[in-house]
């Protein structure tokens, strides 16, 4: 019998959702433990960093790394895991492009800390205490990891072999990745795996009209319901949510999730990232939506309509800020 695969799962700047999603493979977990041993997973097992440091280089067969690089600890462990792993996989939106935490890249580190520790309405911090990287105690000096100026994606700091997008990646795709790894059937290095090759529209239960539909009012999914009685002429499916005015990222987002959100009548949030060959997902959807605005050739009207999109950067770059052409806000 061949040796079992040694699998590591690590979280950096992330929420833990990727681990939960991994558990969603359900009964396949039994098959998983038949072929693999976990050698690191801070979420569910008590491995220490020193345990990892003690592994020989290349000891870990596959490391699923989720979360972005927010501080010096994440960078250090990313470098360590790169050394210890034969295959390093950027797992989930945050490791791929920074994810939700990277929205902080719109602000400077100082502005972010001030908001978090001083001006947030629920804070009770009369002395204005801020986190320090070191603190002298009678017992000796304490160290905390240093916060970086912005959130980076994993491949900004180390070489990455494969990319699995999603927030979180859907269980079915996770399992297909594990199967492919176990069978040794992997595409060329640098590939995005566990995805489809088109955009979410390909799997979407809605359909656009053939021509002539323009958006004159943007709607938000928690305030208004999509109209499911409106049908597209083409195949009688309900009319595309984007056309109905809901900002849907689907057309600019890689397929693979089986359009789960849309099947629940919610517009796509774009967590599977840009389609193959596209650099900047937010820029793509911005130009696509821009081209749908019912401007009637009037720039004022067009500006009024576009102004209805609440938090455009946060919407278009909800997961992609760490990979955006937009950079830290200039002061």
């Amino acid at each position: 019998m061949t040796q079992k695969l040694k699998v590591g799962i690590y979280w950096a700047a992330s929420c833990g959702g990727c681990e939960i999603a991994t558990l969603e493979i359900a009964e396949n977990i039994l098959k998983f433990i038949e072929v693999a041993d976990l050698v690191l997973c801070p979420c569910i097992a008590d491995f220490k960093y020193d345990d990892v440091r003690a592994y020989p280089d290349g000891y870990i067969d596959v490391c699923f790394f989720n979360g972005g690089i927010r501080n010096s600890e994440a960078k250090e462990i990313a470098e360590l895991l790169r050394k210890k792993s034969k295959t390093l996989v950027a797992f989930g939106a945050c490791a791929n492009w920074g994810g939700i935490p990277a929205l902080a890249n719109l602000y400077t580190k100082d502005a972010m800390i001030e908001r978090s520790y001083i001006t947030t309405e629920s804070n009770d911090n009369p002395q204005g205490t801020l986190p320090q990287t070191s603190y002298k105690m009678p017992e000796g000096e304490l160290h905390l990891p240093k916060l970086f100026d912005s959130v980076h994606k994993l491949d900004d700091v180390v070489d990455v072999d494969y990319y699995v997008p999603g927030c979180p990646p859907v269980a079915k795709q996770i399992w297909s990745c594990i199967e492919a790894i176990a069978a040794g059937k992997l595409p060329p290095k640098g590939s995005v795996i566990g995805v489809g090759d088109k955009s979410v529209c390909d799997e979407c239960p809605f359909e656009k009209k053939t021509e002539g539909v323009r958006i004159s009012k943007f709607k938000r999914p928690h305030l208004e319901k999509p109209d499911l009685t409106k049908k597209a002429e083409l195949n009688n499916k309900p009319q595309c949510l984007l056309e109905q005015g809901f900002v849907c990222m689907g057309s600019a987002t890689r397929s693979g999730c089986e359009a789960q959100c849309l099947k629940a009548n919610m517009p796509c949030r774009g967590c599977y990232g840009p389609a193959e060959g596209v650099e900047d997902q937010g820029a793509k959807i911005a130009s696509a939506i821009g081209s749908l605005v019912d401007s009637q050739g009037n720039s004022e009207r067009s500006a009024e309509i576009v102004a209805q999109i609440v938090d455009p950067v946060g919407t278009f770059y909800r997961f992609g800020m760490g990979n955006s052409m937009l950079r830290v806000k200039k002061l």
Binding site: S199, T210, E211, V213, C240
Partner: peptide
């Protein structure tokens, strides 16, 4: 063709 999902955004453009 392989990449087009038929979202029709380009059609009217």
């Amino acid at each position: 063709e392989e990449k087009c999902t038929g979202c029709k955004i380009c059609n009217d453009m």
